[in-house]
C-alpha cells in the first residue's frame, strides 16, 4: 500500500527538501500498512523519496493532501515520455495482467483497464491474443472532448482521469476508438480502507460512482520508479515498459533492459489503428513465431471457461 504524505511543518519541509523532495510533490510512504494501522502518533515512519532514499519522519507531522496530489498528478514526471511495447508472440492469455490491474485499481470483474482480446487480422490469418491497455495517445480524442478538463494528458505522456472532477457525461467513452474507458455505473467495488482513503489521482482509487476510470500506466508505481502492475505481473515476458526519452525499455518478466528504437525497428512494430491519427504510446510486436499454440477456449468475463454453444 502506498499513500502520499505532505509535511505539515515548514522546517520539516526544508528537511525533506534536502532529500530531493519537492514541497508539492511530497513523497511516498512505503512503510507497510502505515495509515491503516493508526496506533501511536509519535511513531516514526519511513518515507521513500523520489530518488530512492529513505528518511524517517514523525507520523504526527504528516498529513495527506488531496489538492497537492491532484496538482502533482496533473504535472506528471518531468523529462519522461513513457511507452509500452507489447510482444504479441509471447502472450498466451494468462490474464495475470488483468487481475493485477483490477486488484490495484479496485475494479469489478467486468471493468478492464487492460483487456486481453482474441484477435484475427483477416480471415484465415490465425488468431492471437492482444492485451489492450489505454494507448495513451499523443493526440488523444478523449481529452479534447472532456467539458471540465477532468481527463488530461501530462507532460510524461500519460492520460489521467480526475474522478473528483468528472461529471460523468461519458463523452470520452464515445470518443475513444480503443474502448479503453470504463464507467462506474453503480457503487464501485469497496475494498477495506477505501472509505477513509484520500483519493489518489495516479491510482484512481477509491473509485467513485458516476465517474470514469481508465488505465493510468500505473502512474503511482512510475512515481516510485517501479514498473506498472500489469507489466510486473506477466509471467510470459509479453510487456516491455520504459522511457522513450532514454530510448530504453525493460521487460516486466526478465527485467532485461534494451534499446527501444532497436526493439521496434527489428521486430516490425506497429501501433493500433494508425489511420485514426491518435499517435499511441503503446507499440505492438507482431504475433510471429508464437511460443504457444492458440487454444480456442472461450473464457467468460470472470475468466472461467465458457461452454460452447453449437
Amino acid at each position: 500500500m502506498s499513500q502520499n504524505i505532505t509535511p505539515e511543518v515548514t522546517s520539516r519541509r526544508n528537511f525533506l527538501k534536502k532529500f530531493g523532495l519537492t514541497v508539492g510533490a511530497a513523497s511516498v510512504v512505503t512503510s507497510l500498512g502505515f495509515l491503516s494501522s493508526c496506533s501511536n502518533d509519535d511513531e516514526m515512519v519511513d518515507l521513500l523519496t523520489t530518488d530512492g532514499q529513505t528518511v524517517k519522519v514523525k507520523k504526527s507531522q504528516l498529513k495527506v493532501n488531496l489538492k497537492e496530489m491532484q496538482v502533482r498528478g496533473r504535472e506528471g514526471i518531468t523529462g519522461k515520455k513513457f511507452v509500452m511495447v507489447i510482444d504479441l508472440a509471447k502472450c498466451r492469455n494468462a490474464r495475470k495482467c488483468m487481475s493485477a490491474c483490477q486488484d490495484a485499481h479496485h475494479l469489478k470483474p467486468e471493468q478492464h483497464h487492460i483487456n486481453v482480446l482474441q484477435m484475427e487480422n483477416a480471415e484465415g490469418t490465425g488468431s492471437f491474443y492482444m492485451p489492450k491497455p489505454c494507448q495513451h495517445c499523443d493526440n488523444p480524442p478523449c481529452t479534447k472532448v472532456c467539458p471540465v478538463d477532468a481527463t488530461f494528458k501530462r507532460q510524461d505522456g500519460i492520460v489521467l482521469i480526475d474522478n473528483e472532477r468528472c461529471i460523468g457525461c461519458r463523452f470520452c467513452i464515445a470518443a475513444c476508438p480503443y474502448s479503453a474507458r470504463v464507467f462506474n455505473w453503480s457503487e464501485p467495488k469497496q475494498v477495506e480502507g477505501d472509505e477513509n482513503r484520500v483519493y489518489d489521482i495516479e491510482l484512481n482509487v477509491p473509485q467513485k460512482k458516476g465517474t470514469i476510470s481508465k488505465c493510468l500506466f500505473s502512474a503511482d508505481r512510475l512515481r516510485i520508479g517501479k514498473l506498472p502492475y500489469c507489466v510486473s505481473a506477466c509471467p510470459n515476458g509479453t510487456y516491455w515498459f520504459g522511457d522513450a526519452n532514454e530510448d530504453a525499455v525493460t521487460n516486466g518478466t526478465s527485467k532485461e533492459t534494451v534499446r527501444l528504437s532497436t526493439l521496434l525497428e527489428q521486430n516490425g512494430a506497429y501501433t493500433l489503428m494508425p489511420e485514426l491519427g491518435t499517435k499511441p504510446s503503446v507499440y505492438y510486436l507482431p504475433p510471429k513465431d508464437r511460443l504457444f499454440d492458440y487454444e480456442n477456449t472461450e473464457l467468460n468475463y470472470l475468466g472461467e471457461e465458457e461452454e460452447h454453444h453449437g
Binding site: P147, V148, D149, R165, C166, I167, G168, C169, F183
Partner: peptide
C-alpha cells in the same frame, strides 16, 4: 449525467475544446 451534483464544474472548469 453520472454526477449531476457537479454540474457547476462545467462553468468552473469549462474546457473550450469540448
Amino acid at each position: 449525467m453520472g454526477r449531476p451534483d457537479r454540474l457547476l464544474n462545467v462553468f468552473l472548469h469549462g474546457r473550450f475544446s469540448s
